[in-house]
Computed example of a mutant assay.
Amino acid sequence: MLSPGALRAHLVATRLAGEVATPREAGLRSYRLLAAGDPRVLLGLEPDGRWGEADVLRLMAERCGVSDDPRQVAGGDVIDPERTVAALDAFAERLGEAAGRHVPVLIGTGHPHRLLGFYAALADALSTAGCEVLSPSQGVSVDITTRFGLRRYNLDYVRGVAFVREAAGRERGGAPGAHSHSPLPVRVALGGALEAGGPLPGLVIGDHGWVCGAGQLGFETIGLADTDDPSLFVGEAEGRVSVVVPLDDAVRSSYYRPLTRYVLKRACLSR
């Protein structure tokens, strides 16, 4: 396992943290849209508090380490690697607790091309530890409104990880498909589990709408988020999300492997 110092160096070298590729403009735009209540940014979360644009910026500075200066409107964004490491430790603690209690888990991602390997390793470790890794509603259609209009997707699972693929795309069970921010897939999955008589997850792991959508429904959730995904951090601040790890969620998939090893070792789940 990497030491915390070596992990920090890896985060910075791969731009998972430190100076990241996510544009400052994208982050500020998301903060404005969240303050305006735009569902494209809320990702299924319905905040209790009143979150103005300045409030969101202050929160993101606190949780991620982005600049709190609203006059800085261009360039790349910054994530404090110390905050990332601390959140990974908390993430690992929740995983270990779930494994110790043998709770059912649901894992889903809106970044299947980048993060499938990270989540699949968690699914495998949790299954080995005695947790049931759920796959409800596999193959069920999910209609999602995108910038290209209403698109039909199918809910699918690969190696225990849920995501959506275009209904007219590749066969079920193949390489993962669509990038999605929508909370609809997790709602479909949880609804399917309920209709089937359970079990329901004791922990939901993921990103984007998988975290916010499940957290809004009262499920314990942990996940990953970039600086332009403020709703997860708002959910954490309001107590609907247990842990959010700030990092760039769109780098090479291989760059997440050391994080996987670190988290599983910290959670006492590595083989």
Rank of each mutant, 00 (worst) to 15 (best):
I222K: 13
E82A: 15
V211R: 07
G149H: 03
S30W: 11
E97Y: 01
L59P: 06
G108D: 01
L115T: 00
R40N: 08
L232I: 15
P185Q: 06
D207P: 15
P230H: 14
R240K: 15
A120N: 07
R151L: 05
F219G: 11
V85R: 00
V211K: 08
Y119H: 05
L106W: 05
V211D: 04
S180W: 03
V204S: 01
V56N: 03
D248L: 12
G65R: 09
R8T: 13
R58T: 10
V186I: 14
M1T: 13
K265F: 11
P23G: 05
G191E: 13
A90Q: 12
L224D: 02
A92D: 02
A90I: 09
Y31G: 05
Q72W: 07
A54P: 03
L59Q: 05
G76S: 15
L232P: 14
M60Y: 14
R159N: 07
I144C: 04
L33H: 10
R172G: 00
H208E: 13
S254E: 15
E25T: 14
L269G: 04
A35F: 03
P176H: 11
E236K: 02
A178F: 09
S141C: 02
H10G: 04
E171L: 05
G223D: 05
G5E: 13
A129D: 09
L122K: 06
P199T: 02
G206P: 15
P70W: 09
D80W: 01
T145H: 06
R266H: 04
R172N: 00
R159A: 12
S135E: 06
Y31F: 15
A225V: 06
G37I: 09
E220C: 12
A267I: 11
A125F: 00
V41H: 10
S30Y: 10
E166C: 02
L59N: 06
E93Y: 07
L155V: 11
T221H: 10
L203M: 07
L7E: 12
P112Y: 13
A167N: 01
D48G: 09
A196M: 07
C212F: 08
G191V: 13
R266T: 06
G117F: 04
L190Y: 13
L33G: 04
Y31P: 08
K265D: 14
G27M: 06
G37C: 05
R114L: 01
A36P: 07
R165M: 06
A86G: 12
L42C: 01
G44D: 04
T260S: 15
A267K: 11
G117C: 03
L59R: 05
L155D: 07
V245C: 05
L2W: 07
C268L: 12
L11H: 09
V85Q: 00
S137M: 05
S231N: 14
T84E: 03
Y262V: 04
S127V: 01
C212L: 14
A175S: 08
Y31I: 08
G96A: 02
D68C: 02
V244P: 12
L106D: 02
A74E: 13
